[in-house]
Design a protein around this nucleic acid. Sequence first.
RNA 1: UGGCUCGUAGCUCAGUUGGUUAGAGCGCUUCCUUGACAUGGAAGAGGUCGCAGAUUCGAGUUCUGUCGAGCCAACCA
Length: 878
Amino acid sequence: MSKQFEKVAATDPNSLPKNLEFPVVESKFLEKWANEKTYAYDENSTKPVYAIDTPPPTVSGSLHVGHIFSYTQTDILARYQRMNGKNVFYPMGWDDNGLPTERRVQNFFHIRCEANEPYVPGLDLPPILSVMTDKEIQEKRIPQKNLSRKNFIEHCHKLTVEDEKLFKKLWSHIGLSVDWNLEYATIDDHSRTIAQLSFLDLFNKKEMYQVEAPCVWDCDFQTAVAQAELEDKEIPGAFHDIEFQVEGGGSFTIATTRPELLAACVGVTTHPDDERYKHLIGKTAIAPLFNLQVPIFGSEIVNPEKGTGILMVCTFGDQTDVQWWREQKLGLRQIIGKDGRIQPVEFKDVVANENYAKIVGKNVKQAQKLVVEMLQAAGVLKNPPKPISHAVKFYEKGDRPVEILTTRQWFVKLVDKREKLIKFGNQVKWHPEYMEARFKNWTENLSIDWCVSRQRFFGVSIPVWYPINTQGVIEYAKVLTPSREQLPVDPMSDVPAGYTESQRGQPGGFIGESDVFDTWFTSSLTPQLGSHWEVNPARHKKLFPMDLRPQSHEIIRTWAFYTIAKAMLHEEKIPWKHIAVSGWILDPDRKKMSKSKGNVVTPAQYIDEFGADAVRYWAGLARYGVDTAFDPSVMKNGRRLAMKIFNAGKFVLQNSAEAGEITEPLDLAFLAKLKQVCEDAVKSFENFEPAQSLMEVEKFFWSHYTDSYLELVKTRTWGEKASEQEKKVKASAVHALRLGLKTFLKLFAPVLPYTTEEVWSWAFTAESETIHHAKFGALSDFDGLTAGVPAVFDAAMAAQAAINQQKTLAKVSIARPIVLLKMKAHPETAEHFKQAQSDVCGATKTEKLELIADTNLEKNQFVIESVEFGPDAKTGQM
RNA sequence: UGGCUCGUAGCUCAGUUGGUUAGAGCGCUUCCUUGACAUGGAAGAGGUCGCAGAUUCGAGUUCUGUCGAGCCAACCA
């Protein structure tokens, strides 16, 4: 059976709009898509599912161009898959719990959470800036209003709901084809339930534990933080050389950057082979000012080159101190409190207590100054402090270095699973491939289990209670957990089974865990949040593992890593088959955009100026994983392309002639080339290189379709034709033009959803009501298509280009037609020219084309022998 | 100190497995509006592909070294 032509019907030319008005088109289709649920995931469909694990953006302020960039890239893939016949699961979540949100809420309302504050029902504060100016707050030093935990959380909810509305508006406007029925927030009941289920599962599998141990602590936010949330900052410091005595005689000098920790000194160590100090190992050192007797021990990891080669071990100055403290079973003297100030500690020695009293209550900086003064006065500061600049660990959102404090925290066991995690990570396909190295590198170097408890308020509660024995002591080891049916629970207001509310905090009663989870504990479950893991097993089975995780590279160590870990711990599975890592948008100086640097560019003005499609074009042109400097001129180009598509569509569709069988060699040659472009575009998308597809399609559309093919066949399609032959030739071109346009629209649709939908709506709704359900990369497949000889098209283009050049060289007005064009060409090429003769003549206003076959020329080579011009059409002058 | 990435036109970027004379867009210069589009069309100037070696008939592309930039980690006494 032969394949027939696809009929593309004519359009009423009077119905075509005159100009492309982006705001009009955008609002028109936003409404249409919403009403018709164009992007809905169909739970009952038998089509194959394509599930996307969309990153839930942090709801703390505004989106910048980098967000638009990466989310649009994902949307382009989603649209491709939808047009590829997939049932696309494309949700949007809001990551609205956690510190960034709390901080925004604190500033927005000028409030802070105070645990002892009573709850005020119905409290509804206005934004602080609607009541007073920033200046007033600062000048009058108006303190933040204290709110109860419950009131504080209520205000968090209030503000995030508003922020999310704005986000949703922008996401829709930029054309994200998410199914808004799948919207969720990481603080909503569903997310809290899944996160707490995750906890119960890990707790029952004994993969979670709580322990009172040295943990990284941020004194500003007063919470524990995880290894993954730390970053180095280079800050100034100074080496202080302090003289220690040795019991039984002698002395030595240690070097430290943290003299304020002298009172927390619990040991002294040096390299066992260091000739200067090895005789001291095993003896007892006496620290000045506080008269502390501490052991001197050897350790291979001491660097003899650094400082004086001998150093004090404190509880705790850094991670190495923790290591020595554990290995040597040293004593514990915690002098820094949770608020970052020196806390009261009792010493045996009277002088020690006197000295210590001077620094109690001071912050680290003040204490350091005082201790140095005391050391100087005591004559044990051997040299003036030597200033250095050194890297110190900070919580990524904090303003001063983290401390290490002994606190009770919940952990997930991960360090013992590094190899397995790497294997699971390897089962995921990374795009680009080299990004897997970052995951592997991080996992290999993991040294602390995942601390998931946070001493914060707006988050998912750790769903446990602890019994209080009859002596009033909290029994942390006897964890009380809720049943699955109880979830989600807030242990601060809900009661464990077998107890009543009146027993809260009483001897013989219970106490609720007040800590919440690290936000990553919840956001590492985004695939499960979408699939309704444990809550709806049938749905979970259909959606999990998901197909695609899009994300940026700086959170591979957190989000990607934790998500892989969770899927592995819960179900021994990978969370998704592919992970596509997008690059960053850098400012024009190639620096990362960040609020603190003040170089953030917001997207709204660009969407207004160039249109959403143009902004999408900019995003669609970037390859995965590559950081790109922000350059709005690319958007300008996107706008040009959208305009061109619009105008080409108008040109093609304003011709209301009947389409006929495609018979002309040039028409068939064009379609043959277009088919190749379609195949390449599909290939690029399948390789996660949508930018490649866009570049090739654009190039072919612009240079081959609009600049060449349209010009070449113009004359054929103009006016009424008298003879049957002329009619047939015209109908062929009319049909090929429409088929070409339709195919291009589909190729552009993932990147330019508005413009393509607009042009599509003029003529092609018979195939599909919306272009976004049409088949991507599909060109009408009929028998004649294979007969197309691409070389005919190349020859015609070459001739057109050559004649354009001639014209320029001869400085001839286009108004002067060519009477006779003589060309010499390789026999095969001459044959191609002959086939495209009428079109070449039409496009170049040539009356007669004379071809001379010449075997001396190479294939595809030709020479213009002579050009004879006729008189100017207007003036009649030669 | 280690791992990864990048270095191509004034700017932003392409350049598949090595293969004619290294590409696009923007910007710049010149020319062209009679039937979609001046938000357009045609042409032009502009590059020793960071540097130095090696492999090869042939290297922007592979390898080694080196310089520079960025990211991730280690170190932080």
